[in-house]
Nucleic acid binder design. Structure first.
Length: 256
DNA sequence: ATGGTCGGTAACCGA
């Protein structure tokens, strides 16, 4: 199985990049975040033309998640029972015996802000949901835009970002708490180049200067981590005209 | 030079 995650920052604007990337990479499942597209406007036909199915949970202007896949998703879920969140940030689906949970974790804006408190509460509530998912689905993939750098290796300038949003200790602890459920950060199962990032600010030529953060992740439960043969960030689409500010992350899991 | 750019939507907010 080939599975990928990509925050596209508006599916309407990025559709040409996404369809081109799908054709080139042929993943079995692509988890998308920040579609910024209401369900009525989701471009189902563009994906069906490529032999892909899609399920989605969108809203106006903000957020929005989708799962684009070779086979249709079963047991689709948009609202974890204990989350009580009107924002469209979660989409779960089952493919064969593999459960996939696409997440768009709140950004948090600024440490100490109201949005930051919402982020930490959201992460804690989702942890409870994921613990339950893991009981029902030993083969679990949790992927998406986490808006968290797991540690300083994932930050271009750790001193400048020290205890800043996306890098604060409580956010990193919440990330570790998710790993503590029995999940592995697929990217760190392998040797990686230093300064590997998945997001670069549009401002200040961040991409050209590689001033980035690694905040997009693929987490694998134990049986899937054991079968994972690669995990990479594909910077190619970030180099295109009018790119998303995020690059896709891609993992290959053998024999499933 | 302590800012900068996007996207959505219609004056700014969110990232």
């Amino acid at each position: 199985m080939k599975i990928a995650s990509w925050n596209v920052n508006s599916l309407r604007v990025r559709l040409p990049h996404v369809t081109e990337w799908l054709q080139l990479n042929q993943p079995d499942v692509l988890a998308i975040q920040e579609t910024k597209t209401v369900d009525e406007d989701f471009p189902v036909a563009a994906f069906e033309a490529l032999g892909y199915r899609a399920v989605f949970s969108g809203q106006k202007t903000y957020n929005g998640v989708a799962l684009v896949s070779r086979i249709a998703a079963a047991d689709v879920l948009t609202d974890p029972p204990n989350l009580e969140d009107p924002q469209r940030r979660v989409l779960a689906g089952t493919f064969g015996d593999i459960r996939v949970v696409d997440v768009y974790v709140p950004n948090g804006s600024e440490v100490g802000s109201e949005k930051y408190a919402y982020k930490l509460d959201w992460l804690a509530r989702m942890r409870v949901f994921l613990a339950d998912e893991l009981v029902r689905h030993p083969k679990l993939i949790v992927l998406g835009d986490f808006n968290i750098t797991p540690d300083d290796r994932d930050v271009h300038d750790p001193a400048a970002w020290h205890e800043k949003i996306l890098c604060s200790t409580p956010e990193r602890q919440a990330f570790r708490d998710w790993l503590g459920l029995g999940l592995s950060d697929a990217f760190r199962l392998f040797d990686q180049a230093e300064n590997s990032f998945s997001w670069w600010d549009y401002r200040a030529a961040g991409f050209r200067r590689n001033l980035g953060l690694r905040i997009d992740h693929i987490l694998l439960s134990q049986p899937l981590a054991a079968a994972c043969t690669s995990c990479e960030i594909d910077k190619t689409p970030r180099k295109l005209e009018r790119p998303s500010d995020h690059a896709p992350v891609l993992a290959i899991i053998d024999g499933v």
